[in-house]
Every structure is written in structure tokens, then in C-alpha cells.
């Protein structure tokens, strides 16, 4: 079994900041907007190097989404930056009409997604954003797993013509993907080979899935871990191929089970190859204040929880 290690931890939002800075140097059409959260989104470098291509809109997210839509008319590629909650739920109709339905080339970049935002609590911990965004026709939904992948994804979405929701987070997490790995939208990455169970994970849960697979391997259970960084369009082929071999699947995400990655996977299996599935996700609940680790443990979103679900799903085969 391939063992993954890391030497450094970093927040995925810094990966976004690094990717945006690189785009500032390489793509003159890229512009950025922020609703009073420059530091939190790590947009400083882009702004420092391209002040004329940055728009501080203040605490007015609805206006930001509309301005971003307008900037595309004239050939700009706008990247909006704010927290995931304010990037989706707060501005759903603006995104729906002015961006998605209008087919505008806006990149909605959302930090502090999920429980790992931590102490600020449930007002800021959105667990519904993947569902909201994946339901919009034409919207691409991406949730990368570490600093390197978030940077690569940020750069890749500039080349994609169409609206994109890019979801990342606040906490420092292990960097384990190669810095030079090209990001292919909609292309799953198989991280380990296994025969007993498929674990499909997205975002911060990918590392937890790898940790779980290590522990499972020691107990004689071989898990195939797949990094699904793109939730829409979903790499159905990769999932089906793996489940054909393993016969069961656990999906893992920092999101409500309603509307999340797990539901998309369940639909794929139902239509093509029904198989036992267990969900690592929040259970139709809001979050609360706490440290990221406490919250992920309490709501069952860590490697220990994955191990338990793997045992359960294998018993259902």
C-alpha cells in the first residue's frame, strides 16, 4: 500500500492566495473582488502586484456577485473572495440569475467552508454550500484537499470557461499532493489501491481517508482511496470502476449528507451499479463553536469515524 506522509501543514486558503497571485502574473484578464476579507482569503499578494485589477466592494456580497457578472462582459475573468457562507447562501439568487443562468465566467472562491472554521460557530460554518452550488445548472463545483491542490485548482479554473464554485478552508492541513501535479477539472485522483472498500473523499476529508486507510491496512482491510476534488462534474467512471472491484463505498465530506458528494455518488451507483454505501457527513444539523479537531470528532468527520463506517459498509456486502 502506498503510504502518504507530509512535512508541512498549511491552510488551503493560502493555496488559493498563491494561485491567484500566480494568475495575476500570467493572465492579464484575471481580476479579483473581495467583500472585506482580504486577509482571511490571502488575497494580499495579488492586490499588491495588481492594484488596478482588484475591487474591494466592502461588506456587500450581493453587489460583489453582480459586479463580477458585469466584469465578464468585456472579457474579464473575475475571482470573488469571501467566506463560503457569504459566497453561496447569502447571494444565492444573485448567483443563480446573474451568473449561472446568464452563463457568466465568474469564479466564486469560498474560504472557511464547513466545521473547520471553528470557534466562530454555526452562523459562519456553512454545511450546505456544495448542495446549493451543485444544483445550479452549468456550475462546476470543486473542493480541493490541500495547499498544493488548491493552488493548482485556482490556476486551472481560470482556463475553464464558465461559472465555478471553488471551496476551501481555514485550518492548516497536511500537504501531501505533489506541487507539480496538474489539476484536471472533473478527473478523480486515485491515491491508494485496495480491494475491500472504496473511500471517496473530498476536501479536508481526503487526508483523514488516507489516515484511515493506513490503520485499516494494519487490520488487513485494503481500502482504495479516491480524491474527488471535483464534485460536479463527477468522475463517475472512476467511482464505478473502483466499486466494481471493491463492492462497497464510503463517501467522506465536510458537509451535510443532504446535497453533498455522497448524494451524487449514491445517484451514480443507483443508476449504474447499486452497492452498499455509508456516509461521512454531518447529519442534517448546524455546527457550533469549538476547535476544528473537536468539531470534526464530535460530528464524526475524522479518520476514526471513517474506519467505523468502513467496517459497517463491508459488513453490508
Amino acid at each position: 500500500m502506498k503510504i502518504y506522509t507530509y512535512t508541512e501543514k498549511k491552510d488551503t486558503r493560502s493555496g488559493f492566495g498563491a494561485g491567484l497571485a500566480e494568475l495575476g502574473r500570467t493572465n492579464p484578464n484575471v481580476v479579483a473582488l473581495c467583500a472585506d476579507l482580504i486577509g482571511s482569503l490571502k488575497m494580499d499578494k495579488f492586490i499588491e502586484e495588481n492594484p488596478e485589477r482588484f475591487f474591494q466592494v466592502g461588506i456587500a456580497e450581493a453587489n460583489m456577485m453582480g459586479i463580477a457578472a458585469g466584469l465578464t462582459i468585456g472579457g474579464k475573468i473575475p475571482f470573488t473572495g469571501t467566506f463560503a457562507n457569504f459566497s453561496t447562501g447569502r447571494v444565492y439568487d444573485q448567483i443563480r440569475q446573474s451568473i449561472a443562468y446568464s452563463g457568466k465566467n465568474v469564479k466564486i472562491c469560498a474560504s472557511h467552508a464547513g466545521l473547520t472554521l471553528g470557534e466562530d460557530g454555526a452562523t459562519h460554518q456553512i454545511l450546505e454550500d456544495i448542495g446549493l452550488m451543485k444544483m445550479l445548472p452549468g456550475m462546476t463545483v470543486i473542493n480541493p484537499c490541500d495547499f498544493n491542490q488548491t493552488k493548482a485548482a485556482t490556476i486551472a479554473i481560470a482556463e475553464h470557461n464558465g461559472p465555478v464554485y471553488l471551496r476551501f478552508g481555514r485550518p492548516s492541513v497536511p500537504i501531501f499532493t505533489p506541487a507539480d501535479q496538474k489539476f484536471e477539472i472533473g478527473k478523480a485522483i486515485q491515491l491508494t489501491e485496495g480491494n475491500d472498500v472504496t473511500i471517496v473523499a473530498t476536501g479536508h476529508l481526503v487526508w483523514e481517508a488516507l489516515e484511515a486507510s493506513k490503520a485499516l491496512n494494519e487490520k488487513g482491510i485494503s481500502a482504495e482511496v479516491i480524491n474527488i476534488h471535483t464534485i460536479k462534474p463527477l468522475d463517475e467512471e472512476a467511482i464505478l470502476n473502483s466499486v466494481s472491484k471493491t463492492g462497497c463505498i464510503v463517501t467522506a465530506e465536510e458537509h451535510n449528507y443532504l446535497g453533498g458528494l455522497g448524494e451524487s455518488v449514491a445517484r451514480t451507483l443507483a443508476l449504474n451499479k447499486p452497492a452498499p454505501q455509508e456516509f461521512i457527513a454531518t447529519n442534517d444539523t448546524f455546527g457550533e463553536s469549538g476547535t476544528p479537531a473537536q468539531l470534526m470528532a464530535k460530528y464524526g468527520l475524522n479518520s476514526n469515524a471513517i474506519i467505523e463506517k468502513v467496517k459497517k459498509v463491508i459488513s453490508r456486502k
Binding site: A62, M65, G66, I67, A69, G70, I73, Q94, Q97, S98
Partner: peptide, 11 residues
Amino acid sequence: QGMSVAIGAAQ
């Protein structure tokens, strides 16, 4: 929503 869009196009 239109004024925000118009502003973006103006910028």
C-alpha cells in the same frame, strides 16, 4: 440585480 452588473461592465 442590474445596477451591480452595469457597474461591473462599466469597470
